[in-house]
């Protein structure tokens, strides 16, 4: 049997004493794309942050296994090295750090962790050119400071570009569609689709069904008040679009999702 890429069991998490996740169960197999939808405040971004290793969140119960290892034992940078990538909803601007040097540091830190040789300047630039093209990102942006002065669309494309550079096993996209017009949305989605493979899994967090027209998920889950209340295939997203979150009834006790 194949090892699950990600196996979240009964996950409870707090921030500043307030419980946000109240028993999340989710299994992602290699090659699968799971979409998590849900109303504001349901815990979607918290789930993404907890997977990535945000220290402000405290996991009080449950477990996350990633590719056979206990993910909660690892620090944020170790998780990235192990193959977890979080595309931020609000990518952070870092004045004074050029995107190119930042990426070189990241790529080489991850290669080092995986026991691969660090890239020299030439190989690194070749890789940058190839990957930037895949999301139609201008190379000129890479001379700017990390996310500084990037438009909303550029920031999101830069996140997908970084994901392509870092070659993770699991990509978590936290509302990557927010603030994008339809053209930018298509470019970002195409960039993600090019990264889909048998080995790689994705968790796509979104409010709207629109993104899922372009990144077609294998599974759709509805997160509400810190638990997954319903799971289904892509048709669930359409149902949500029609009825709204209020109209979704929880699965019955026979369903494995709760």
């Amino acid at each position: 049997m194949t090892t699950p890429l990600l196996e979240i069991t009964n996950l409870h998490a707090n921030i500043e004493g307030k419980e946000i996740l109240k028993g999340v169960n989710l299994t992602v197999m290699p090659g699968e794309v799971h979409s998590i939808m849900g109303p504001n405040g349901s815990g979607k971004s918290t789930l993404a942050s907890v997977i990535a290793g945000h220290e402000a969140y405290e996991v009080t119960d449950g477990s996350i296994r990633f590719n056979g290892i206990d993910l909660l034992e690892l620090e944020a940078d170790q998780r990235a090295c192990a193959g977890v990538f979080l595309a931020f909803q609000y990518p952070v601007e870092i004045p004074g750090v050029s995107t190119k040097f930042f990426l070189k540091a990241a790529v080489n830190a991850i290669r080092k962790y995986r026991g691969e040789e660090e890239l020299d300047a030439m190989d690194f630039l070749d890789m940058v050119e190839e990957k930037a093209e895949s999301v139609s990102l201008s190379i000129d942006l890479l001379d700017r400071n990390v996310n500084e002065g990037f438009s909303g669309g550029e920031k999101k494309r830069a996140e997908v570009f970084q994901m392509a550079m870092l070659d993770p096993l699991l990509g978590v996209l936290d509302e990557t569609d927010s603030g994008l017009d339809i053209d930018a949305l298509k470019i970002v989605a195409e960039g993600v689709n090019k990264l889909r493979s048998k080995k790689r899994g994705f968790i796509v967090i979104t409010h709207y069904q629109r993104l899922l027209d372009f990144i077609v998920p294998d599974f759709v889950h509805v997160l509400k008040d810190g638990v997954i209340v319903k799971s289904g295939d892509k048709s669930l997203a359409l149902e949500l679009e029609e009825k709204g979150y209020a109209g979704i009834e929880s699965c019955g006790s026979a369903c494995s999702c709760s």
Partner: peptide
């Protein structure tokens, strides 16, 4: 956090 989620 941002830098660390990139493996640094």
């Amino acid at each position: 956090l941002y830098l660390r989620t990139r493996g640094i």
